[in-house]
Simulated scan of single mutants.
Amino acid sequence: MLAGQKLLAVIPARGGSKGVPGKNIREVAGKPLIAWSIEAAQRSRFVDRVILSSDDTDIIRVAKAFECDVPFVREQRLAQDDTPTIDVVLDALDRCPGYDWVLLLQPTSPLRTAEDIDEAADLCIQHRAPACVSVCPVQKSPYWMFELSADDQLQPLLSAPKLVRRQELPPIYCLNGAIYLARTEWFRQHRAFIAEGTVAYKMPLQRSFDLDTELDFQQLRIFLEDR
């Protein structure tokens, strides 16, 4: 429980991935990709229940093998390429009522740990925040990025300070997709994890892999072998 309130972790994993077929159950360092998120949630001090939302029988079978709760099969209308993840989470909350907090864990972020989950939850309590999302430092600062005009002239993407050394630029963060946490009623009201009041939990680049392509899987494999 989180500050005496119940927390539901939702792992969304539909079948039919086109970029990397079968990616959610593809083996990563000896176990299916989805198992990494299941185990992290199960080890969290705050998560009361871990459920899978999926339309795919193979993904459901694998999730159950790792003792993840699968209380329903996701409807096909919520398993399309353009289905918003927010709608998937709302569907899970409707089917599994009675939780004060909801945690979205995308299986494509396998290196997120139980400690990351717990520290993000602690951050919400410390700041009395309604939501928290995970971020990581950007590898290339947008202060060094440009758009091109019709005649190929450089147009700064941001109103940046005059050209300075990289070390002098302000720190910039981006979403890494690993953790989305919010109070349930606040989430229902905003239909989002990011709105006024959301705080950021900073994660290092080394745990911020977000797998979407074959190249991402290759890079993760090399990273894990080196580690």
Rank of each mutant, 00 (worst) to 15 (best):
R128D: 11
F223S: 11
V70M: 06
L93S: 04
Y99T: 00
F146K: 11
R112G: 14
D118C: 04
I86T: 13
N176M: 10
Q139W: 11
R74Y: 01
P110M: 00
R14F: 09
Y180I: 00
T83C: 01
A92G: 01
A13W: 01
A40N: 09
A131M: 00
F146S: 03
K23T: 05
Y201M: 05
V50A: 11
Q206S: 15
A29P: 02
K6D: 02
E185W: 05
L52G: 05
N176T: 06
R166G: 09
F217L: 15
V20S: 04
L169G: 01
I38Y: 06
V10F: 02
D81G: 06
K202A: 13
T83A: 09
I25M: 04
E39T: 05
P107Q: 11
Q189A: 10
D210S: 15
D94L: 01
R49W: 11
G16I: 02
W36Y: 14
S53R: 07
L211Q: 08
I172S: 13
F193M: 07
H190Y: 10
F66S: 05
W144L: 15
D216W: 06
I60Y: 01
E196F: 07
R49S: 10
E214C: 08
Q155M: 15
Q167D: 14
F193L: 03
A9Y: 03
D216K: 09
R221D: 15
G30A: 13
A114R: 04
I51F: 11
Q155I: 15
A192E: 02
E115F: 13
E168W: 12
Q189V: 01
F217V: 07
V88Y: 04
D56E: 06
S149M: 08
A195C: 07
E185I: 03
L154G: 07
K23H: 07
E196S: 13
S109T: 13
K140R: 14
E185Y: 01
D118M: 05
R45Y: 05
L8Q: 02
R191V: 00
I60Q: 10
R45M: 12
E67T: 09
S141P: 08
L93Q: 02
P130A: 09
E27A: 08
D122F: 03
A3H: 07
Q76K: 15
E225H: 14
Q206H: 12
R43T: 08
D87W: 11
R191F: 06
I34T: 11
A129W: 07
S208K: 06
R112N: 13
E39N: 09
A9L: 02
K140C: 07
C68T: 04
K202L: 15
S208G: 06
P171W: 12
A129T: 10
S149N: 08
S54V: 02
Q5G: 01
D91S: 13
I222K: 15
L169I: 09
D87I: 04
A200M: 14
L52H: 12
